[in-house]
C-alpha cells in the first residue's frame, strides 16, 4: 500500500521513491536528477526520513506523469540497489509465474 502523504515517513534503511507511469502503468523510480527511470539501479537511494520526504514531495509535485508515488525499501547488500521486499521484487521483475509465450503469429519470421 502507498503511504499517505501527511504521514511522517519512517525510514530504517535505504529507500527509493517509486510510482507507476501514468500513460502505461509501468513501474518507475525517481532518479537523483529529478527524472524517472524504469531501472531500479538508476534510482536515487536515500537513508534518512528527511531525504526520503524531499524526494517524495518532489515526485508528487509531478501530478500528471506519475501515479501513486511512495517510498519503498531497497537492499544494498549486493552493491546496486535491489528490491527490499517481495512486493517490490514482483513490481521490478514481473509476476513470479510463467506467462503465456507470445504467439508465433506475432513473431516476425525470416525465411
Amino acid at each position: 500500500m502507498t503511504s499517505p502523504l501527511h504521514q511522517k515517513i519512517k525510514v530504517t534503511g535505504p529507500v527509493v521513491v517509486t510510482a507507476n507511469r501514468l500513460t502505461d502503468g509501468a513501474v518507475i523510480y525517481r532518479t537523483a536528477s529529478g527524472q524517472w527511470t524504469t531501472e531500479l539501479p538508476g534510482a536515487a537511494v536515500v537513508t534518512t526520513s528527511d531525504a526520503a520526504m524531499a524526494l517524495l514531495t518532489a515526485a508528487r509535485a509531478e501530478g500528471v506523469r506519475v501515479v501513486d508515488a511512495y517510498v519503498a525499501p531497497v537492499d544494498l547488500s549486493h552493491g546496486k540497489p535491489r528490491p527490499g521486499n517481495l512486493r517490490e521484487r514482483i513490481r521490478a521483475a514481473g509476476p513470479t509465474i510463467r506467462l503465456p509465450a507470445p504467439e508465433a503469429a506475432n513473431v516476425h519470421v525470416c525465411a
Binding site: 500513460t23 513501474v27 514481473g94
Partner: peptide, 28 residues
Amino acid sequence: RRLSGELNEDEFKLLRLLNGVYLQLHAY
C-alpha cells in the same frame, strides 16, 4: 483530460474505476 492535467488522479481514479480500469502492480 487526465493526460493534459485537467483531471487529477483522485478525480480520474473514480471515473476510470467506473469503466473497469484499475492500476495494478505493473500496468493498468
